[in-house]
Design a binder for these strands. Structure first.
Length: 392
DNA sequence: ACTCCTTTGAAGTTT
DNA sequence: AAACTTCAAAGGAGT
């Protein structure tokens, strides 16, 4: 059962264990990190990339630089726990580009002013916007480790899906700011309204949070976006943790700040209210990928995600255990928050929502090696010319 | 428009 | 319990 057990956070993250990788190579490989990039580049570019992609480089570099600057500015404010390791190379260069608090405008600053960073948010998170859950996570320990701050949570979290959601822990709402004056009236009777709503404006850009909403009673004022059938809150503000079931195109609008959906959606919704999808929380590697992708893109002038992911996979193995541990910790917190937000959710809920390719993928370690392309990729061979043994 | 590719890890399902 | 399967992100490529 995915629900929170009464034990608290310890058992929630029990599965997060450091694992040893057979090909990790540990320190030696890590030392070669820089060389890695060039080798990755050589390997992958030669096989996957045309030089026509070169024009993308300046923009990608600029993104990475922006992300880096944002990260440096935000780090002191947001990384207060053990995750704050500014000196460490992983964060130094990463820009933590995909993390929500880096994409925020500056309402988190004491003066609540908006910095120029705000305009760069979409650049930092250039594609489909924020992960439904990741942007919600402060990535410090406070919301989860200080149960005294959230007296309502432990008991209420055991409630099943659809049950009335308690007022959120005082810590969490702070990370889900509500735009001033953007608060709508809740509609009381729909299934999803029990979910807390932490509206974000587009692309992870958050508006200042109204202090008036910090009381538990205030949360009931928010209608879950699912009630609108399109992932949009009654305020017109999309909910970051929910993906409209209808597809990515909806999600693009959702991410890109179409705060108010076109009226013609409403009659549609009456016909067939679709159940939006709650995505899985990201695991450690996914978090790492989100963070490092922009950097790799900038360094390698690659865009193809499959190639980038190969690089990231190798880099992941090259990370020290301490570095990996940070991501495991982040992932653990992400799962925790996800469970808090969606107590009745199960990964099974999303089964079958994605069309799956044929079974060959998981059989290619056996007699069927899979396609030559896949096999070459698996063995790090040149995609154009090399053949792996099984494909020969 | 839709699916695949590619990675690792978590969680669900099947054997 | 172990093995297997699916999904999470990403965006170019292919159908």
């Amino acid at each position: 059962m995915p629900q929170l057990s009464s034990g608290g956070e310890e058992d929630l993250g029990a599965s997060d264990e450091m694992i040893s990788f057979k090909d990790e190579g540990d320190q030696e490989e890590k030392i070669q990190e820089n060389a890695f990039t060039e080798r990755d580049l050589a390997d992958l570019k030669s096989s996957l990339v045309n030089e026509s992609e070169a024009p993308a480089l300046p923009e990608a570099i600029r993104r990475a630089q922006d992300a880096h600057r944002v990260y440096q500015e935000k780090l002191a404010d947001h990384m207060e726990d053990g995750l704050k390791h500014q000196e460490e190379p992983m964060y130094k260069g990463s820009g933590y580009s995909s993390y929500p608090f880096l994409m925020l405008s500056d309402p988190y600053l004491s003066n609540g002013s908006m910095s120029t960073l705000s305009s760069k948010v979409p650049v930092v998170q250039p594609s489909h916007g924020v992960h439904p859950l990741t942007p919600l996570i402060p990535y410090n320990n406070e919301p989860f480790s200080h149960s005294s701050h959230s007296p309502h949570l432990p008991a209420d979290l055991n409630q099943k899906q659809g049950a009335h959601r308690p007022p959120q822990t005082p810590d969490i709402p702070a990370f889900y700011p509500i735009p001033p004056g953007g608060v709508g009236q809740i509609s009381p009777s729909m299934g999803w309204q029990s979910q807390p709503v932490y509206p974000l404006s587009s692309c992870g850009f958050r508006q200042p949070y109204s202090p008036a909403l910090s009381t538990g009673a205030s949360y009931s004022r928010f209608t879950h976006p699912l009630m609108l059938g399109s992932g949009v809150h009654t305020t017109g503000i999309p909910h970051p943790a929910i993906v409209p079931h209808s597809g990515n195109k909806d999600m693009e609008c959702y991410d890109r700040g179409m705060l108010y959906r076109k009226p013609h959606f409403e009659p549609k919704r009456e016909k067939e209210p679709k159940k939006p999808t709650i995505k899985k929380p990201l695991n450690a590697f996914m978090l790492y990928m989100k963070e490092m992708r922009a950097k790799v893109i900038a360094e390698c002038t690659l865009k193809e995600s499959a190639a980038i992911n190969q690089i990231l996979g190798r880099r992941w193995h090259a990370l020290s255990r301490e570095e990996q541990a940070k991501y495991y910790e982040l992932a653990r917190k992400e799962r925790q928050l996800h469970m808090q937000l969606y107590p009745g959710w199960s990964a099974r809920d999303n089964y079958g929502k994605k069309k799956r390719r044929s079974r060959e993928k998981h059989q290619d370690s056996g007699s069927d090696p899979g396609s030559p392309k896949k096999c070459r990729a698996r063995f790090g061979l040149n995609q154009q010319t090399d053949w792996c043994g099984p494909c020969r």
